[in-house]
Design a protein around this nucleic acid. Structure first.
Length: 574
DNA sequence: GCCGTTTTCGGCCCGACTGTTTTCAGTCG
């Protein structure tokens, strides 16, 4: 059973209840339960059967029952009941920035609005602005929110797309005549958001021989044949998947084509043509005869190229570098010896220090940089001074129990509106390293925001700038920031910049990685984990680093703890 | 609805900003 689907269900129930006007604490209880389920480390069905789930903090009889029913039948009678009472459109409106429950209910009661289309109309024709406690600016903000929602709806986050792709790949792999299935497209290239999913299949018959089998597969809504060698599959969640098929002897071509990008393929086709080949959507031929290419490297080799990692196939320098034999040796997860940016129960994380440390140690890390929120992030349970002292005492005690692992004392300090970090130097001195992040006042203009972050970088305690642009993919645009200036200052001050591995952030953007590296800036991969499951964010971070052409030597947490600490101390000496 | 070193009922995350109003409700992080 998919724990993420169960978590989504609990969250959806919370939204309906909120709009229905339920007790806000009850609503929060469902949200909390959703977060607990989503952050579960193991398999949900197992946790349900063993009683582990029932024992978890935040899960009580009512929320447990929702999960249990969903596990047994795939439905929720509670949600079905709520949907009869609350229009779906109202729940959708909750995703619009600036609209909360109260405003939505007012709109529903006063103007009979129950869909986004009606909301848009009322925002345009002045009816919305005329309501008490509404106005022109609110109407404009809502229209911007609707536009953002429409833009976002066409895409999904990379880890969601990857999960969908893996499920479909599994279903196809089980069909008769299928030899091999690989996830391709933007998911394979580790692009941060995906419009759809692409799969490459090695099989013995034509594409349509898979049609009947796929129609019966779980989560498949519709299958359409789109040619001799391809199918388009629509999944229950609305995702479109393009399935490209080829006989095993031509699978390399198929996989390259299904992976893209369009620009990369165009450049590859040009190179092929110059060398007497013909590389097109259906075939890879020489003098009209198909060239055998059971895997990708054969095709690249035929064009005088080293195999190009999919992350690099964006139509940049990759073909020239592959021709010259100077492709980078990209960062790998195993290169990382330290896990950085991790929240514990001391602030808004759901696991204890000892649970997090044990999981990191088991995953092969040699240190864990704990960075709970600082005081200013009161909503996230930011640490006051006494909590810092307690946490440090616990870390010292835990560290006495290992000789092959250690917890580093870090903090994710808020960069306040004026650029100050929100602890004084006497508190900041107690940490091994400091991540500085912007969490508030994101509406500042570019000049102010840039000055703010630059000012924070002048603080000798600052080790790392966390999630530099504050973006939430498909959720919130990055705040305006002169990244070039931040990079220049980071090089000058020897401050590292984070690639935040939270799939919603992936910030620093991969397009900026090489520029930061070339300026001499150290990069860290941060998990921004709030639970055991969040530790896996490191994989997403590695994907972005690879996509940004980074190698192990460019990344700070490939260094052993002493090397990392030396970097952090160096900053303080400035 | 969930929780408990304040333990079976009473409390649960809080402070700042925005846009609307003339004193603050609503939203956000």
């Amino acid at each position: 059973m998919d724990k993420h689907a169960a978590a989504r269900l609990l969250d959806t129930i919370a939204s309906y209840q909120e709009l229905k006007g339920e007790n806000p604490f009850k609503v929060r209880a469902f949200s909390n339960a959703a977060r607990t389920v989503d952050g579960l480390a193991g398999d949900l069905a197992q946790a349900l059967a063993s009683g582990e789930l029932a024992a978890m903090k935040g899960i009580g009889p009512a929320t447990l029952e929702v999960v249990r029913e969903y596990a047994a039948s795939g439905r929720s009678s509670l949600l079905e009941e709520l949907r009869r009472e609350v229009p779906d459109g109202l729940v959708e409106m909750l995703r619009i920035s600036g609209l909360g429950v109260t405003k939505i209910r007012t709109l529903h009661e006063q103007l009979r609005i129950s869909t986004i289309a009606e909301l848009e109309l009322a925002s345009r024709n002045g009816r919305l602005a005329a309501l008490p406690r509404f106005g022109e600016k609110t109407a404009e903000k809502i229209l911007r929110g609707i536009e953002f929602l429409r833009r976002s709806d066409a895409f999904r986050l990379s880890h969601h797309a990857a999960r969908t792709a893996a499920q479909l790949a599994g279903a196809i792999a089980a069909l008769a005549g299928v030899e091999r299935v690989e996830i391709a497209g933007s998911v394979r290239r580790r692009v941060e958001i995906s419009r759809d999913v692409d799969l490459a299949v090695a099989c013995h018959g034509p594409a349509r021989s898979l049609e009947a089998g796929l129609k019966g597969a779980a989560s498949v809504r519709e299958v359409r044949s789109t040619g001799e060698a391809s199918l388009t599959v629509t999944l229950e969640d609305g995702t479109t998947a393009d399935v490209y098929c080829a006989p095993p002897g031509q699978f390399g071509h198929c996989l390259i084509w299904a992976t893209g990008s369009v620009t990369h393929l165009q450049q590859l086709a040009d190179r092929a043509k110059a060398r007497g080949f013909d590389l097109g959507v259906d075939e890879f031929t020489r003098e009209a005869a198909p060239v055998p290419c059971p895997d990708e490297s054969v095709l690249y080799a035929a064009l005088g190229l080293a195999w190009i990692p999919p992350e690099l196939r964006e139509g940049g320098e990759e073909i020239a570098r592959a021709a010259a034999g100077t492709l980078p040796h990209l960062l790998e997860r195993q290169d990382l010896v330290g896990l950085l940016h991790c929240h514990s129960v001391y602030s808004d994380g759901s696991n204890t220090l000892s649970e997090l440390a044990a999981a990191c140690r088991a995953a092969g890390y040699r240190y864990l940089g704990i960075t709970d929120h600082s005081m200013a992030a009161a909503y996230a349970g930011g640490l006051r001074e006494d909590a810092v002292a307690r946490q440090h005492a616990e870390i010292d005690a835990l560290n006495r129990g290992w000789d092959d692992f250690r917890i580093l004392k870090g903090i994710e300090a808020d960069i306040l509106a004026d650029g100050a970090l929100d602890y004084g130097p006497e508190v900041l001195d107690r940490f091994d390293f400091v991540i500085g992040s912007v969490h508030s006042r994101m509406d500042q203009d570019q000049v102010t925001m840039t000055q703010r972050v630059l000012h924070a970088m002048d603080d000798p305690h600052l080790t790392i700038v966390g999630h530099p642009t504050g973006r939430l993919l498909l959720g919130r645009d990055p705040f305006p920031l002169d990244l070039g200036a931040i990079i220049a200052k980071a090089a000058e001050r020897e401050v590292a910049i984070e690639i935040n591995g939270d799939p919603q952030r992936l910030d620093l953007d991969w397009r900026w990685c090489a520029r930061a590296r070339d300026a001499g800036v150290a990069i860290t991969i941060g998990a921004d984990a709030h639970s055991l499951a969040g530790l896996d964010n490191m994989d997403s971070g590695v994907g972005i680093a690879r996509k940004g052409w980074l190698e192990a030597r460019d990344v700070l947490n490939t260094r052993e703890a002493e090397g990392f600490l030396e970097y952090a101390r160096h900053g303080k000496a400035h």
